[in-house]
Each structure stands twice: as structure tokens, then as C-alpha cells.
Amino acid sequence: MSAAAGEALVRAEQVHKSFGPNEVLKGVDLDVNRGEVMCVIGPSGSGKTTLLRCINHLEKIDSGRLTVDGELVGYEQRGDKLYECTDREVAKMRASIGMVFQHFNLFPHMTALGNIVEAPVRVKKASKDEADDNGRRLLAQVGLEGREDAYPRQLSGGQQQRVAIARALAMEPKLMLFDEPTSALDPELVGDVLDVMRELATSGMTMFVVTHEMGFAREVGDKLVFMDGGVVVESGKPRDVITNPQHERTQSFLSKVL
């Protein structure tokens, strides 16, 4: 059920989410089109990470509509009722969405290659040899050729994050989610990770990037969204939003980070 190019791959309509009494998302609307790189910026607590986690159902939304590739996230609509998806259906949906975490979350007891081939072999039931070959190719793609036997702890933060990107790509996702992928890195390691992401964007991958890297957002992003207080305050072409913010809250945020 794939839509035509240019059509929304991710669509959020009036998405609400609370943690206990604390309402984090207060009606978010946004579209991420196929092949587009969307960067989301905003102060901490603005709900940008929560929104990202809702997209692959790591968090359940309370109300509103959230669809990926035309299908509701975590629910199935039959008639006028929403049925919550089973474990199996959620897992299947997640397998087609790659996610990269702020703290990498590599599996420390597996080698770099082991991390990459785990899901293709166990979830997609790919053959071990095929997965290994593909894994080595991905390691080369992220600039870590020959490091397949290194354990995560033997790698620098930047290298770990690049392995994490390769691990997500190994599932051949239609969408990649990045949750502040460079925030936990030493400044001199950020560039390598951004280079990999830039290359990925060039290859046509649809990306949803929560970030603090204004340079990356301006240069690589097709769309920039500024979130604050659980809503989308402003969105548009990155260059326009950064150089000529319309909203007062956007102006004050940008004046602090730029």
C-alpha cells in the first residue's frame, strides 16, 4: 500500500500524549513526505523526542491520528472502531522503521557485525552469510571497514553511533528516526556521524531528525520544524526559519542556540 512519491509518509494530526498529569504533546500536526529530511528543533521538554518515539510506537498516543505509510501506528481501524495491534503486528511495523538513539544503545555483548546482523537474521530470517556480507558492506558505508569484530566498548562514541546507523539500515527501513544522534558525542566526533547522515539523505532516505545541529538542519534538511510546549510553533524551509523566524518563541530560541 505504498503512496506516490512526494506524498506524506508520516502524518500526524492533533496528536496528544500525556505522562500522568503532564501533557507533553498538545495536538501536533505535521507531514513528512517521502524522500524528505525533516529536522525538528526545540528546547528540552518541548515534546520533540516524545513525538519521534510515538512514530514507532515506543510511546502510545492518547488521541489524534498518527499514520506511517497510510497505516495507523499501533492501531487498526475496522469500521468506526480502533483495535490495538498485537505484539506481532507492532514488531512488524517497527521492523520497517529504523531508529537511532542518543546513547547509541548498541548491544555490548555482540561485536559490531553481530549488532548489525542480529535483526536481519532473527527477525527477517535472512541467511547468516547473506546478512554478514550485507553487514560488512554497511560497515564500509559508514566508514568502519574492517572493524566488524570490535565490541562496542572498544569503539569511540562516534564509531558506535555509526555502527548503530548501520544496524538500523540493515533492516532496509522505509523511514529513519534519529533521536539527537550527536548530542552524546565529543565535538570532534560529531562530523563523522553527520557525514554519514548527509550521505544517507542524498541517497533518498526519508529521515525524521530531532537535533541541535543547526548547521546540519540548514544544509541537509528539506523542512525544519520548531516545537515548543508540545505543539509545532513554526515550520518551513530550514534557511527561512533559521534566518527569518516569524514567531517570537522561535526567535528567542534561535538567539540562544546560534
Binding site: 514507532n56 515506543l58 505484539d87 506481532r88 514488531a91 512488524k92 517497527r94 521492523a95 520497517s96 522503521i97 529504523g98 531508529m99 538513539f101 546513547h103 544503545n105 548498541l106 548491544f107 542480529e118 535483526a119 532473527r122 527477525v123 548503530a164 544496524r167 538500523a168 533492516m171
Partner: peptide, 13 residues
Amino acid sequence: GQTEAASALGMRR
């Protein structure tokens, strides 16, 4: 985060 990373890859409980 380990469980989250694994579920994000489509692995089940």
C-alpha cells in the same frame, strides 16, 4: 535502552 533498541528493530519480547 537495550530493550528499546531491540524492539525498534522489530524483535519481540
